[in-house]
Simulated scan of single mutants.
Amino acid sequence: MELGNDTRSSEFLLLGFSEDPELQPLIYGLFLSMYLTTVLGNLLIILAIVSDSHLHTPMYFFLSNLSFVDICFTSTTVPKMLVSIQTQTRAITYAGCITQMYFFLLFVELDNFLLAVMAYDRFVAICHPLHYPVIMNRPLCMLLVLLSWIVSVLHALLQSLMVLRLSFCTDLEIPHFFCELNQVVQLSCSDAFLNDLVMYFALVLLATVPLAGILYSYSKIVSSIRSISSAQGKYKAFSTCASHLSVVSLFYCTGLGVYLSSAATHSSQSSATASVMYTVVTPMLNPFIYSLRNKDVKRALKRLSGCKV
């Protein structure tokens, strides 16, 4: 059955959250405000780190990369949804859907790996403070970020190529606000067993390995903090990784919540609503977590805005 050429020119329909016309302005305003807050907040973090020489350290180098990825991550889904609401059209081209899916997978994996790299950075800083400048040198930091990009690009490319081999029939409605990999594969009228196998194997591998690294790093960090005799020393050591721990908890708990809610309710609509947490809300909250709990970032932001420190 040769449907490959037909699917290249077909369109998918992104059903979004609600078909009620009265709710569309509310949804539009809510997502526009969250998107602008995300872009502005993460952009300010990047500018503050770049402009302040005191923040040219491995920890803030990784943070600036995370902020850049968060901007790109949100920009792959929200602008398209806003345009769809504004123009009253839900159609997205086949090429556009594959492209959106590719960049979504790329940036969500980058978020995953960068959080693991930042956990390793905190592990070295707290468990091996005397060797920190030697271990976390600039070439190693660049290499860790580069490897994160390479693995994420290859994973997103593999999944996108696997979708390209599928054929699609008439029912091309996606009950989501973006082209989510699992939803697109389910619409296929050809055998998707190999796609499901690769998808879940990659999910388990690329999610559990960074998470295992984060858990291992923090287990060592907790052991090191417990061995510190003074309460002030314990507080100082913990405060250096509190912001990162908050972001890690937010990212993985919301991401896990999406899959648990969709598995429990078997509702694509509830899955789309839950996906907002880790695709929109988490990137929006990250700048607030790092700026409100970090004196160095707050000082840099004040310098950037021209306020007297």
Rank of each mutant, 00 (worst) to 15 (best):
M34V: 13
N65P: 00
T38I: 07
Q86F: 13
D52F: 03
M81N: 11
L55V: 05
F62C: 00
T89N: 15
T37A: 14
L66N: 02
T38W: 04
H56I: 02
T89F: 10
N42T: 14
I49P: 06
L44N: 09
K80T: 10
S67P: 06
I85R: 13
R90T: 13
H54T: 11
L43P: 01
L44E: 04
N42S: 14
M34D: 07
T37Y: 05
L36V: 15
F61S: 10
S75W: 01
H54G: 08
S53K: 15
T57D: 01
L43E: 09
F73S: 06
I46D: 00
T76V: 09
V83P: 00
D52M: 03
D70Q: 14
T38N: 13
S84A: 13
Q86S: 14
I71R: 08
L63F: 05
R90I: 12
D70C: 15
T57H: 01
I71M: 11
L36Q: 13
I46L: 01
P79M: 03
L36H: 09
V78I: 15
F68R: 15
Q86Y: 12
S84H: 09
A48T: 07
T77Q: 12
F61A: 09
A91P: 01
L82Q: 08
I85H: 09
L63H: 01
V50C: 04
T77P: 02
A91Q: 09
I46S: 00
S75G: 05
L36W: 04
D70M: 13
S53F: 00
R90F: 06
T76R: 02
G41D: 04
L63M: 11
S53N: 12
V78T: 13
N65H: 12
S67E: 04
